[in-house]
Amino acid sequence: MADARLPEKGLSPYRQIRNVVLGSITGLAFLVAVTPLLAIIYIAYDRGKAALSLSFVTTMPSGFPVGIEGGILNGIAGSLILIVLASLLSVPVGVWAGLYLWDQSHTRLAGITRLFSDLLLGVPSVIWGVVGFYVFSTNTGWGFHWGFSGLAAGLTLGFIMIPIVTRVTEQALRDVPRSYIEGALALGATRFQVMRDLAIPAAITGIGTGILLGVLNVLGQTAPLVFTNYYNTGIPHSLVGSNGSVGDLAMQIFIYIHEPSKALHVKAMAAALVLTVIVLLLDMGIRLLSWGSRKYARKA
């Protein structure tokens, strides 16, 4: 190999160009990724702005077909009712299960429970709809026979929230420094006392964040409502039975956009903007909360 020698020092033009091209491609891809997402918000605003006003969120829908005039108060109120119902079920159960997974972390039963909790995170929302239908709504066979109603839908959404709250609660508790827990145990505190006095107070922001994250996840859920609640143009007096359906923002968008009416499409886009803004604000709130608690934890 008489000819063997090192390549010349310095970058060949090929390598220089490749470096620039491969770098630029990533920026370009990022733009391609983000542009449609931002376009969604812009188009919702652009196509919906004709309907946007304060009264849009404070009045009930009216006209024929219903919704062509008036606002989306029924949807906002209904979504709120559903979230409250979902939280009433999922917060106690999810936090409870999260406490269990943390406390008895390495037992075999906890391992199995954690596995199934994670599996529940992957259940598609139509399946939740079917399950909610048979457990709460159907009027034949076993189940609660609540019909298409707010209670049925709220608790179905609660089912979806449970594994989210469970996971985030466990994670928040695990983030409590071990030294902190050991300090109390070494004083002769019981596990219950450690949990009540130290672990939960230290993890409370994390748990709160988890609950909000769960709410965020079910806020835009539409499919389960098709199976358990459908839609109501008014605000119901009861949450159970044949007149128990509630309005819902996501369902409202679905119904409006499904109609071949330009006027309803405008309302749908305006409602989509409202829903998106609520979701993004909630998301921002969660970020501020967890950012604040992290800052606090660093000081500790």
């Binding site: 030294s179 050991e182 300090g183 109390a184 006095d197 130290l198 230290a202």
Partner: peptide, 8 residues
């Protein structure tokens, strides 16, 4: 313990 671990 090794590291001071006062409670919050």
């Amino acid at each position: 313990f090794q590291k001071p671990n006062p409670f919050q």
